[in-house]
């Protein structure tokens, strides 16, 4: 459980909120300038608010009144930035292993081989970050974050700079982290598609205030939509029999003549259309 209580002033912008997050994936959702990034910066310790109290489980990370301020590197959180921020002077392998030396006595959370397998970055290990594409960089950055065995992952619009196919790949990665590794995630985005795919809970922010909090409706029919079929089933009604082998069927607002020797007028039938018999015509 993560409790976040913040009050802060940045120029004309003021931040004032008090939220409690359960485990799972919480999306901080809202327009640019809503204060989403400031919130996770404060949680990560990259921003010290004027007033604040941040508690993860029973560990107080920040309490401005009690003068408790655990520095960023001792918070044991991983931060996945919009820009992957891979260290340019280190290879992909050295980037991935960067957080491991700071684990101390903590057990590793994710096995190295399994992680690079899941992310599909095994073939990139010897390369330098400069030689990677945007999607590859972000996958390495996610791997680097996971391998630092964080107690919490903070992700700040990690997909914003990627094209659609890359986004989809990485959404799957985040789904896996959420469902398999079971690390709590605070995920900042202004994309409602990402909210729909990922959110267990949504905290809606605007102008530094909480507008609403609700359970995320992960698209229930997501699985059904994803099934790829080669036969289309349409329901129609037989209007009349033309002869022994043909009927006229009312289908999708049109009358169509179909081969059939059994259906009776007035009867509802399922008409199967093979994908191979269909063609795409541009409007």
């Amino acid at each position: 459980m993560l409790q976040i209580e913040l009050q802060h002033q940045l120029g004309a912008f003021s931040l004032d909120l008090n939220i409690t997050l359960e485990s799972g994936l919480t999306v901080l959702f809202g327009p640019s300038g809503a204060g989403k990034t400031s919130v996770i910066h404060a949680v990560a310790g990259l921003l010290t608010p004027r007033f604040g109290r941040i508690v993860l489980g029973d560990r107080v990370l920040l309490d401005t009144q009690q003068r408790v301020h655990v520095p960023t590197h001792q918070r044991e959180f991983a931060y996945i930035f919009q820009d992957p921020r891979l260290f340019p002077h280190l290879s992909v392998l050295e980037n991935l292993r960067y957080g491991q030396r700071f684990l101390g006595a903590r057990p590793a959370l994710a096995a190295f081989d399994a992680t690079i397998d899941t992310l599909g970055i095994g073939h990139l290990l010897a390369r330098r970050p400069m030689a990677l594409s945007g999607g590859e960089k972000q996958r390495v950055a996610i791997g680097r974050a996971l391998l630092s065995s964080p107690r919490l992952i903070l992700a700040d619009e990690p997909l914003a700079a990627l094209d659609e196919p890359r986004k989809d790949e990485l959404l799957r990665v985040f789904e896996r982290i959420r469902d398999v590794l079971n690390i709590p995630i605070v995920y900042v985005t202004h994309s409602s598609a990402e909210v729909a795919r990922l959110a267990d809970r949504v905290v809606r922010l605007d102008q530094g205030r909480v507008l609403a909090q609700y359970a995320g409706e992960r698209r229930a029919q997501a699985d059904a939509v994803e099934v790829v079929t080669d036969t289309l089933e349409l329901t129609g009604r037989v209007i009349r029999r033309l002869n022994a082998t043909e009927v006229e069927v009312h289908l999708e607002e049109q009358l169509i003549r179909l081969q059939d020797d059994q259906a009776l007028p007035g009867e509802w039938v399922v008409v199967c259309v093979e994908a191979t018999s269909m063609r795409v015509q541009r409007r």
């Binding site: 520095p71 991983a78 931060y79 921020r85 684990l103």
Partner: peptide, 14 residues
């Protein structure tokens, strides 16, 4: 970019 230093800190580097 100071962001590299931030990234290192979030990975546990003092």
């Amino acid at each position: 970019d100071p962001q590299y230093e931030q990234a290192a800190a979030t990975l546990g580097a003092s």
